[in-house]
Amino acid sequence: MKKIAVIGGGVAGLEVSKQLLEANIPVTLIEQSSKIGGNIKNYAYLFPDFYNAEELLNSYHYLITDPNLQLLLNTEVAKIDFSKKTYNILTKDGISVPADAIVIATGYNTFDARLKEEFGYGIYENVITSVQLEQMFKNKEIKTPSGKIPERIGFIHCVGSRDAKVGNTYCSRLCCVTAIKQAIETKKFLPSAEIFCFYIDLRMYGLLFEDLYLSAQRDYNIQFVRGRLSEASEMLDKRILIKVEDTLIGKPLQMSADMIVLMVGMEASDFSKQFKYHNGLEVNEHGFFNPINPHNLRNLTSKDGIFLAGTAIGPMSVGETLDHARGTALSVLSFINAN
């Protein structure tokens, strides 16, 4: 029997495992953290329909008891030894897992907002990230660290994306709609709050996204300002003073806010970024894994038996991730049948 390993227990890794287990194929799933679920376990509700993320993850929980699944939690993969026909996965703690086929589903990291120092994250207490806001939604409480209910909140788009200065020139695709989703949710929480979104342009690529945008303006009175934040500073009362060039009216604009939310982008995982400096697998200039081509071979790498699933190849929504992961599971099945 071929040995199959999946690296990464986010929704992509879980979906591939689920598909293979349903076909009676034993799987070793390796996850670095103490829980499965990946990034979405930090999020409350998902766009475009405010579906409960926890509910989605719960639908995978039954896998844990499947006798065909060997689940290795708290196990970080350090490298893969490609030198023999049966590959060898080596973990940080020195365990080695032999495998004939490996699915890489190591996902993404959110951008470390401290790198965009002029926005003051990590320096000013009322600058938070979209991930922290999700946590507030989960706790059902939106408050500043000093316990104040924010009256004016600014959402800052494209933090760590479309920004050559931090080395990321690509668009993360999901943060625009996430900002709108979060703005609406915030407004539902704090109906009297004033909410502003500062954007370069709005990338509403999904079918229902534009509707969400319309509803934000019409039903929730969220204001959209076209302009990129140039810098944020802290005022004496800890509110944040933001400086933006409003590119629609062509004037610089200054505004104070009780809290600003940085829409952090998606970056390649550390595991994939290492291949920028070391040989082994192909990554693109942004550090995401490169499939053989982005059309019909989107799940395969140039190495036989090494597959890709989910956001390890670039920003995707949950739905797209799951579709991609199912495709990967099919590729793995045909690999097993061919050998």
Binding site: A78, K79, D81, D112, R114, D270, F271, Q274, G280
Partner: peptide, 11 residues
């Protein structure tokens, strides 16, 4: 070390 990118030794 907040900003440091993890480095992995790869064979």
């Amino acid at each position: 070390l907040p900003h440091r990118e993890k480095s992995y030794a790869i064979s």
